[in-house]
Amino acid sequence: MNDEPLPPDHGAPVWVIVPGYVGGRCVKWLKKVWVSVKENESHYRIWDNRVLPSFITEKDGEFAMTMFNHPSSACNEQNLNSVIVRPSQGEKLPLLEARKGKTYRIEGYAYDGGGHDVQRVEVSLDGGETWLYCIRRFPDAPIRHGNKFWTWLYWHVDVKLAHLLRAKNISIRCWNVFKNTEPEHPTWNTMAHGMTNNCWYKVKPEVIEEREDGVPEILFRHPCEPGTGDEGWMKPSNEQKIVDAKTSGDAPAKQFTREVIEKHDNEKSCWIVADGKVYDTTSVLEWHPGGATAILGHAGKVHQETSDEFASIHNGDASQKLNECILGKVTEKPATFIEKHAEARAKELAQPSQVNEDLVLQKHRWVPVRLRERKEVSQECF
């Protein structure tokens, strides 16, 4: 992996990768291989990595059960997609920069599944009425093998800055070898707030006046801020608002201090804090699809990371299950602690990391060490 031995976090000793297929069809930590007359019936094979019709709004019901087990709903080859990278989220351009003849390079990437070639990439500045042809830069071998392309390609187009500043929005679409292209609008589905949606990626500009000299600027917003989902132009759909209303639930009146919460940090009593609410997830450990370790890592901890991680990888059904475990909410003091800790963490990540070569355990980098002794305690693979 990147010319280095495969690390444990990425599947060492063996990770089977199926080129051109979604990650859900690849296997980490491979222990054995067997041949079967039927498809695998594991949780992730049946209940995840699928796209259901938009009229199916819940996982319960006979028709939903049929579709979850039907081959047509399974995600296999990656779908056609393209993304704008520059202008970046939050990037600002002063209006004074729009001098005569000055240009700006819009950049991004595009890909298609099954190793298929992305034959055309286009950008629109007027909401799709007209399109500009983009220059493509293809990958080198070995991820480009003959007519097969196993990764994204980069694209760019140079436009006059004056045109960019007057843009209704910046939209991107691409075409594959089958002359298929991306739809303009997303199609909602119940899986993970709309799994595999590949509609036009849009970056929207807006005029702001935040500079001390009073010079207006153009602020570019992506659909959402990477990671947190905040500060983007995209808002929850009506369908998602309904799901959120069903799963939000008011916390019981009982309140817990930080000292009490931190005592419940083990398999026998596992409490977590998410969005200021306290949950007893002990009963979830034995059946959680991601394993008990994923929850125990947040047990007894009062920090923002639990809320962010849960929101980034779980859907409405998981929120409903979590609400069944609710105990109450945190008191004012730990709520303030969480807020200040999150602010400090954000500032820390924004600063360039200081590398200390003598420190082995560092937050933002791997430090190679030499194995001095090895003692085998078990033949079992975890």
Rank of each mutant, 00 (worst) to 15 (best):
N2W: 07
N2A: 10
G20V: 14
G23A: 12
K28P: 10
K28T: 09
W29S: 07
V37L: 09
N40Q: 10
E41T: 12
E41R: 06
S42F: 08
Y44P: 01
R45P: 01
R45T: 13
I46V: 15
N49R: 08
D60Y: 03
G61P: 01
S72T: 10
S73T: 15
C75F: 09
Q78D: 10
N81D: 13
I84H: 03
V85T: 13
R86S: 15
R86D: 13
P94N: 11
L96I: 14
A98D: 07
K102H: 11
K102N: 08
A110Q: 03
Y111I: 03
G115Q: 05
G115P: 03
V118Q: 04
Q119F: 05
R120G: 04
E122P: 02
L132D: 00
L132K: 05
C134K: 01
D140Y: 02
L161Q: 05
H163S: 12
A167T: 00
N169L: 13
C174Y: 06
T181L: 08
H193G: 14
N197Y: 11
N197F: 12
C199E: 15
W200R: 10
K202N: 13
K202H: 12
K204D: 03
I208D: 00
E209A: 09
E210F: 00
R211S: 05
E217I: 01
I218Q: 02
H222F: 00
P223G: 00
T228M: 06
D230K: 12
E231H: 05
K235A: 11
S237L: 04
T247C: 07
K254R: 11
K254L: 14
Q255I: 09
F256E: 08
E259A: 13
K263I: 07
V273S: 06
A274T: 10
A274V: 14
G276Q: 01
V278M: 01
D280H: 04
T281P: 00
V284S: 05
L285V: 01
E286V: 10
G290L: 13
G291A: 10
G291D: 11
T293Q: 12
L296F: 13
H303I: 12
H303E: 15
H303T: 14
E309F: 15
E309V: 15
I313T: 15
N315S: 15
Q320H: 07
E324W: 06
G328V: 01
K329D: 00
A335K: 04
T336E: 09
F337I: 06
I338Y: 02
E343S: 08
R345H: 05
A346M: 06
A350H: 06
P352M: 05
P352H: 05
S353N: 04
D358A: 08
K363L: 06
V369I: 13
R370F: 09
K375S: 09
S378I: 06
